[in-house]
Amino acid sequence: MRALRPAAVAAIAAATAVTAVSGCAAKNDGKGGSGKGTIEVTATDTSCELSAKEFPAGHVRFAVQNKGSKVTEVYVYAPGDRIVTERENIGPGTRTEITAEVKAGSYEIACKPGMKGDGIRQKVTASGKGGAAKRDPKLDAAVAAYRKYVQEQADQTLPAAQKFADAVKDGDVEAAKKTYALSRVGWERTEPVAESFGDIDPKVDVRADGLEKGQKWTGWHKLEKSLWEEKKISGDDKKLATQLITDLKDWQKRVGKAEITPTSMANGAKELLDEVATGKVTGEEERYSHTDLLDFHANVEGAEKAYELLKPVVGKNDPALAKELDKQFKVIGELLDKHRDSDSADGFASYDTVDKGERKTLSDGVNALAEPLSKLAAAVAGAK
């Protein structure tokens, strides 16, 4: 949901290339099941075309093809712009596939060329009883455990963010710098759930180049810029620190009511890897503080948590996928461990000290994990 600078485009091309094959076999025959009843979404720079605007509720597969010249993203919105599912960073000329659990009701599908704005939207309807069929009790247990996890992350974030906000309000630049990255860990682990509300993420985590027309810049990154680039704290910054806590308390209160399904957990894990590929590996996210590696680690932790909770079912439905994910999560963890720094306030090296070769190695590790992770939702839904 954030605008990208040119440095991110190359990373997107690499990240999307590994997911392109997953949608290539999709077809629309209206019968449901693996490769069946798929809704084709064809995105260009000026259009968002669907193969069907009404489909049965339940597990729905969207095969997305970007025929435009710009990186795009696709969202499925419930009323009030609540995000049901999304897939960001779909490069020009590539395809990807999204499996989501959609209840009966009215929705909008949005394609966002350039990954900005409200997008080009199409109204759609999911008919029927909305996924009332029984599902594996292990998936219900996974959802319950994940709901507890995201609430715990929000609860743990508030005191860490309060330390950061207090340092800002005290005008203590050095103390604020030391607590900044640590205040973001819980958010980064569970960001897709926070983003599902639609209105919180733009308040607390937007970057300057992600602002919509007329939007005031608030949140962590505005304060990050003041601390590291301007090297001072203004009166307005102190007000923004207070507002940050207000917005995070709103997130803390609402996160327990978020709609979470097994497929949204799986898709959220993939979204976290997309965040790494286009924000952390490129150095875009923490461009002033260079604390990208802690964010990177938190994103991976959140994705792995979702996977581990879903693994009892994934291991049964697609044991080869589970084996590959186990392998790739271990590899990315080892790559990150090479950049730990016990002298750093956040436990990792400053990202501006990581050279191009090391960044390429990290990027390759992310891509190697992103490819099998893009298949997680289909495995959860029982289709290989």
Results as ranks from 00 to 15, higher is better:
Leu4Lys: 13
Val9Trp: 03
Ile12Cys: 04
Ala15Asn: 08
Ala15Trp: 03
Ala20His: 11
Ala25Tyr: 11
Asn28His: 11
Asn28Lys: 04
Asn28Cys: 10
Lys36Glu: 15
Val41Gln: 01
Asp45Ile: 14
Ser47Asn: 14
Ser51Asp: 01
Val71His: 13
Thr72Ala: 14
Glu73Phe: 08
Val76Asn: 08
Pro79Arg: 00
Ile83Gln: 04
Thr94Val: 07
Thr96Met: 02
Glu97Ile: 14
Val102His: 02
Val102Asp: 09
Gly105Val: 02
Ile109Glu: 05
Lys116Glu: 13
Gly119Ile: 06
Lys123Ser: 14
Val124Gly: 13
Ala126Arg: 04
Ser127Arg: 09
Gly131Ser: 06
Ala141Lys: 14
Ala141Tyr: 00
Arg147Ala: 13
Lys148Trp: 00
Gln153His: 08
Ala154His: 06
Asp155Glu: 15
Ala161Gly: 10
Ala165Asn: 09
Val168Asp: 06
Lys177Leu: 02
Thr179Pro: 03
Ser183Gln: 09
Arg184Ala: 11
Arg184Asp: 12
Glu188Leu: 01
Glu191Asn: 12
Glu191Leu: 09
Pro192Cys: 06
Ser196Leu: 05
Val206Ser: 11
Leu211Thr: 08
Leu211Cys: 01
Gly219Trp: 00
Lys222Gly: 10
Lys225Ile: 10
Leu227Gly: 05
Leu227Arg: 08
Asp237Leu: 06
Lys239Phe: 05
Thr242Val: 10
Asp247Trp: 11
Asp250Ile: 09
Trp251Ala: 09
Lys257His: 13
Ile260Thr: 00
Thr261Val: 06
Ala269Gly: 15
Lys270Asn: 13
Glu271Phe: 04
Glu271Met: 03
Asp274Gly: 08
Glu275Ile: 00
Gly279Thr: 00
Val281Arg: 05
Val281Cys: 07
Glu286Leu: 07
Glu286Thr: 01
Asn299Val: 05
Glu301Asn: 10
Ala303Arg: 04
Lys311Ser: 14
Pro312Lys: 07
Pro312Ser: 08
Val313Asn: 06
Lys323Val: 08
Asp352Ile: 05
Thr361Leu: 11
Ser363Leu: 09
Asp364His: 03
Asn367Ala: 10
Leu373Pro: 02
Ala377Arg: 09
Ala377Pro: 01
Ala378Asp: 12
Val380Thr: 10
Ala383Tyr: 07
Lys384Ala: 11
